[in-house]
Design a protein around this nucleic acid. Structure first.
Lengths: 341, 341
DNA sequence: GATTCCACTGCAACCGGTTGCAGTGCGACT
DNA sequence: AGTCGCACTGCAACCGGTTGCAGTGGAATC
């Protein structure tokens, strides 16, 4: 434990600058914040000194007086007991969020919460660590939302809004997504198109199913309940449900899967039992994760423009914090055609 | 812009608690921090009131007086111009870091820096937003390290330490990794094992190559320079370099690839030209990203135990901040055998 | 020449904690 | 009884900004 190499050149404060410029702290503070009360000459002089001295404002001090942290917490949950590995979807969205926040001078805090913990909102909001939350957690999401609404905490969530609560949301256009996917498969001449959905209780899934049904009807096809199953978005569940789908409707020639991960699991099963993709069974996924370009065959999928989602989550949350305007944004989807369909 | 629904029940401060308990602010502060000066009775009374009032300490205030933020910044760079998509390796490490930090009561800040920006360390350290950095950026890493060392900023970096500077590092056991991978391939009876490395100037890559050479020699095989090429870790470069490898050594029957992403690119090329994996060419990757279980064939790879890496990065950095003890940790690697080899 | 106004600037309080030092009360020891 | 020490507790300053309000000087107006 050796002593500090360079005893730190004590941080330069506005008081130091004030002394050097021969003005008061208030003037320096105002000048640095470009307050119109301050004369141009003074401003320039102060800015020059600040630059020369490499002045860095002290964030905790500013946050203390301003009573806002200029920080947003990204909340998600640990995926595994011990170490948490974030899923791909969550990860890809992060880049978009930071880009949106940075433009407005906000910091991004990572927050991995225990799904059963009810204390994290207070620990961050009341404690002044964060001004708002971006909710990506799916486990027990409703419980968390209820809690946040009740304590009047600023937050925005990914997913279809709960009818009983009022809060900001960003969602994908699931109806159109389902229609695009199934329509594309029908357009390829497929006649027995299956639906491998996410959890049946999710509104998103119903909408995708509705889009799927519409597209089939428009193509003159019927929706056969035997060709409809539901999983939980994971690749494991994709494999499992694909098997039960093949049991129930062995003659299917296409499948619209509600997540890329499930689609990958499904394709593995198809390959195992000797069906070729896309020749025997065409597959369309959902999300357009970067992994879809790296699997074989590359996966045709519905793209949600995830970076845009992230950016909107950031921007709309900040807007809500400032104006309390509740927004619901639907981001457009598009079909990305690759090899699998 | 409607008025606040519930006009916020103004945050409870230690002054409020002091009033209610009939003691002074100092006593409350000490009691809450479990300072031995305070009597047990008083402590209990104060803790009870704090709980009842849902007291949350004000972080900015504490950070201001303590002059430390209890926050670590995770610094990486944007991968694309406009929106940044984090690469998988970076992302998987994040979970481990947060787990390590949380145990010690630290927050994790995400920091995406422009590789050419030289101002971010000051903007965060001097400004009191973060107490230290975890460096994962690879672009212009050396420049950033130099900068941080010169300003005596606490940080830890993933990768082999620069010989001229002294700072904390965590690295994988690349020598063993290379030996394990090549040894496994040799053990399968492969005779013409190629090496598809990362950037040739990286020390990590040299070590993996050394391990590879050692393993080949131990197996009685020769290292043929024609079977050695270098890429940049991306899947695109994996595909490209695989092609040049096949040009130069069309008879290869196995390849040790320095990253999973490159391995995936390489496998696509192999498939395109009609070579089967693993029958014709066995492939071993590096990193054990979660994606390796989802590709076909699943990828045999060298696992760096990424969650552990993250945890060590966090713990060793905090230790450095507290004691200025410079640590260099090598995390063990292991071979994960799957279908591709 | 006196008054008014305006454009700036400074004073001092405040945000909510932490901490050095100076009490305070009480039992113990001489 | 007097003194000392010990175990607590309180006072007040401080961290580094922001801001309401009062003050200053000079030009413009009457």
């Amino acid at each position: 434990m050796k002593p500090r190499a360079v005893e730190k050149k004590k941080a330069c404060t506005i008081a130091d600058i004030a002394r050097e410029a021969g003005v008061s702290k208030s003037t320096v503070s105002r000048a640095l914040n470009d307050n119109p009360l301050i004369g141009d000459g003074t401003k320039q002089k102060i800015n020059a000194i600040a630059k020369k001295r490499h002045f860095q404002i002290n964030m905790p001090a500013r946050r203390l007086t301003l009573k806002q942290s200029n920080t947003i917490a990204f909340v998600t949950h640990s995926m595994y007991k011990q170490f948490s590995v974030c899923d791909l979807f969550t990860m890809e969205i992060l880049g978009g969020i930071t880009s949106g926040l940075k433009e407005q001078g906000y910091d991004l805090l990572m927050l991995f919460v225990d799904p059963c913990d009810a204390d994290w909102p207070a620990q961050h909001l009341a404690a002044g660590r964060a001004d708002g939350f971006i909710l990506m957690t799916s486990t027990r999401k409703q419980a968390h939302i209820k809690m946040l609404v009740e304590m009047d905490a600023p937050f925005i969530a990914w997913g279809i809004p709960h009818p009983k609560y009022s809060y900001c949301t960003v969602i994908g256009d699931d109806l159109t997504g389902g229609k695009l996917a199934a329509g594309h498969l029908a357009g390829l001449g497929r006649k027995r198109i299956a639906f491998l959905g996410g959890p049946s209780e999710e509104k998103e899934v119903s909408l995708r199913f509705e889009g799927y049904s519409t597209a089939l009807q428009e193509a003159g096809l019927i929706v056969d309940p035997l060709r409809v199953v539901h999983g939980d978005y994971s690749d494991k569940s994709g494999a499992e449900k694909m098997r039960s789908l093949l049991d129930r409707a062995p003659d299917l020639d296409a499948v619209f899967v509600n997540s890329d991960l499930m689609a990958i699991g499904a394709m593995q099963v198809l390959r195992e039992i000797g069906k070729r993709v896309p020749e025997d069974v065409a597959v369309v996924g959902y999300d357009n994760l970067s992994i879809t370009e790296k699997v074989t065959p590359t996966l045709t999928t519905v793209s949600q423009n995830i970076p845009l989602v992230g950016k909107l989550l950031a921007q709309n949350l900040l807007q809500y914090i400032r104006t309390r305007a509740v927004t619901h944004t639907t981001v457009p989807v598009e079909l990305v055609v690759r090899q699998s369909a």
